[in-house]
């Protein structure tokens, strides 16, 4: 997921669209997806297909981003078809019967999660991490009323994203250092690997704490404070963004209408 659905800088309408609009669209579509009929799902498929083509991201490329969750989809499908009571379609010896309702629900629910994933991938593939956090910061600004700093929330998200590759590097270094001292895991069984991971977690945790400490100092040294701050770019909605918002609103109304 991390590599496949990563931002890919291209020149397209979707790439140029304000990140707030894209984030709102993904959230609205996600909510609509949870409670829409097969016709609604079909409308969303057509919409996502058109959006994907307009963003110069091919459907196959988009489909590949779902690969890490195929197992999850399969498990979800199996749970629905084997646990939903209804008219038996067929049964096999030693197996509980599969109902028509179970098959229907399995396909619909799997499609919902699949489309949700595709919509999120389209968002992350056309929006840089910097833009995502900026959109988050902007959209959460009303939370100031209840004394929640949208800037701090956005900063936490951006830090978490920024530190993922760093922590992976750190883990790799610790693993290599352990292997250099004879603790090589190649060919070991799962139990040994699990035990080793617990052993690795101590230096990793200590290093993370040390990094946090130094990062805090570096941020303070660069004048970080809790008050308001300014940004490299300020987001501004263009006419196209308003059209996009209108389109999303129209789709949501249609989905609500078709149930």
């Amino acid at each position: 997921m991390y590599n496949q659905a990563r931002y890919s800088a291209r020149e397209s309408v979707l790439h140029r669209t304000d990140p707030r609009v894209k984030l709102i669209a993904v959230l609205a579509l996600s909510l609509a997806l949870l409670n829409t009929a097969p016709l609604g799902l079909f409308i969303i498929v057509i919409f996502l297909l058109v959006v994907s083509l307009s963003s110069k991201i091919g459907p196959l490329e988009l489909l590949r981003t779902t690969r890490p969750v195929w197992a999850f989809f399969a498990i979800l499908f199996l749970i629905y078809i084997f646990t939903t009571a209804g008219t038996p379609l067929f049964s096999a010896p030693g197996l509980k019967y599969i109902s028509r309702e179970g098959l229907y629900l399995g396909i619909v629910q799997m499609s919902r999660f699949f489309l949700l994933f595709i919509a999120a991938s389209l968002f992350t593939m056309t929006t840089s991490q910097a833009d995502i956090t900026m959109a988050l910061e902007n959209l959460l600004r009303p939370l100031r009323v209840i004394r929640i700093s949208s800037h701090n929330v956005a900063l936490m998200v951006s830090m978490a994203l920024r530190f993922i590759p760093l922590l992976l590097q750190e883990l790799n270094v610790i693993q290599e250092a352990s292997a250099a001292r004879g603790a090589d895991l190649k060919g070991k069984n799962l139990k040994d690997k699990m035990r080793f991971m617990v052993y690795l977690s101590t230096p990793l945790l200590l290093n993370v704490m040390r990094r946090c400490d130094q990062l805090t100092e570096a941020m303070n040294a660069r004048g970080y404070h809790h008050g308001p701050r300014t940004y490299l770019y300020e987001l501004a909605l263009s006419r196209t963004d308003y059209y996009a918002l209108g389109l999303i609103a129209a789709i949501i109304v249609v989905l609500w209408y078709v149930g």
Binding site: S128, T133, R222
Partner: peptide, 12 residues
């Protein structure tokens, strides 16, 4: 500071 990784805040 000495370690640049521990002072870079931005995502780009």
């Amino acid at each position: 500071f000495q370690n640049p990784d521990n002072q870079i805040v931005g995502m780009s």
